[in-house]
Design a protein around this nucleic acid. Structure first.
Lengths: 178, 178
DNA sequence: TGGTACATGTAACATGTTACATGATTAG
DNA sequence: CTAATCATGTAACATGTTACATGTACCA
């Protein structure tokens, strides 16, 4: 039954299932909106992890509901596995940033093209920052005390995107264009 | 021969091979030191990609040297594939940050334990920032003009780590501890 | 009644990780 | 002579990605 240690994706699903039974579909939406900015996952993965966790007794499929939805409920074993997971030392983050590869190999790219690419990415980051700032601005008063955890992850997004923009704006003309 | 489009890892190896033939061992070391901070790869992967690229005619194994080392040289086809790759639109970065998951699910973690974990990660980021700052301080004069691309990736590391530290220092007591 | 959103799931494949086996060369 | 380092490679598995197949229910 207890096959392998939980991976972070499966553990996150268990984390959300603490709030009540949810279907794979729900979990995808929940995860993408709540942790999607620093932990990506796909539909396929969610169904795979749910099936594996059901086999391991960490979750239990419930009766099918409307539109064939199949909610899963966390079990006691699931709660125990989640607690063990969340108490371990988190691994260091990994960043995979293709734009930096393009820049690192920038001498193989025509200067105007590199500048265009960089400008497009800067724009994407500006848009994401604006989205975070809007969420931040619309936070109800007292959110920082009521939901410090979610607010801290939003703060991360803000800090990250602001740093990215500052970095973009500091790039030399050889990269960002004249 | 031309099986699938290049992935970023394989393309990076081709990028380095522009500087001359290198063995898998050399490439691992080169990649880890030059792009390791924003593009991770392992030994296994390098040997696998080299074998695949050799099969596709993008690189050519040369005679074995000392200690059985087997240098690979980039071919014209390899140069063409690299140029095509480096000219495409880079994909958005992915960040996978387990500590943020721990924080997001922080209500399931004892407060003092969460604070300890956070402090340990802050320390790790401080150390990385210090390392980047030292590299930065030791940059020879004129490096910004001579090697704008590598300097820009260093600037990214500096901006990122500084933002992380600022974020850590702004965490509320509920997370960072009283 | 037909399109769209909801919902589950499989298959195939690409990529990433860990562990191991093997041998060559060098330094002490 | 032996330990450490250099160097290549395989095997097994975990994770991530893309594409597809299927069916349900709502709503215009």
């Amino acid at each position: 039954m207890p096959s392998r240690p939980l991976n972070a994706t499966a553990a996150s699903l268990l984390g959300f299932l603490h709030e009540g039974p949810m279907s794979g579909w729900d979990l995808v939406a929940t995860a993408q909106s709540r942790i999607g900015d620093f932990w990506s996952l796909t539909q396929s993965q969610v169904y795979r992890e749910l099936a594996a966790m059901a086999a391991d007794g960490l979750v239990e499929a419930q009766e099918r509901g409307r539109r064939d939805r199949r909610p899963y409920a966390i079990t006691d074993a699931g709660r125990a596995a989640f607690t063990a997971w969340v108490s371990r030392e988190p691994e260091p983050e990994t960043i995979r940033f293709p734009l930096l590869l393009t820049i690192m190999f920038g001498r193989h790219v025509p200067a105007d093209q590199l500048a265009t690419v960089v400008a497009r990415h800067r724009q994407a980051h500006a848009a994401r920052l604006a989205a975070y700032e809007q969420i931040d601005a619309e936070l109800p008063p007292g959110a920082a005390e009521a939901e410090p955890y979610a607010v801290a992850t939003l703060a991360f997004g803000l800090a990250y995107e602001r740093a990215m923009l500052a970095w973009f704006d500091d790039l030399p003309p050889a990269i960002a264009g004249g």
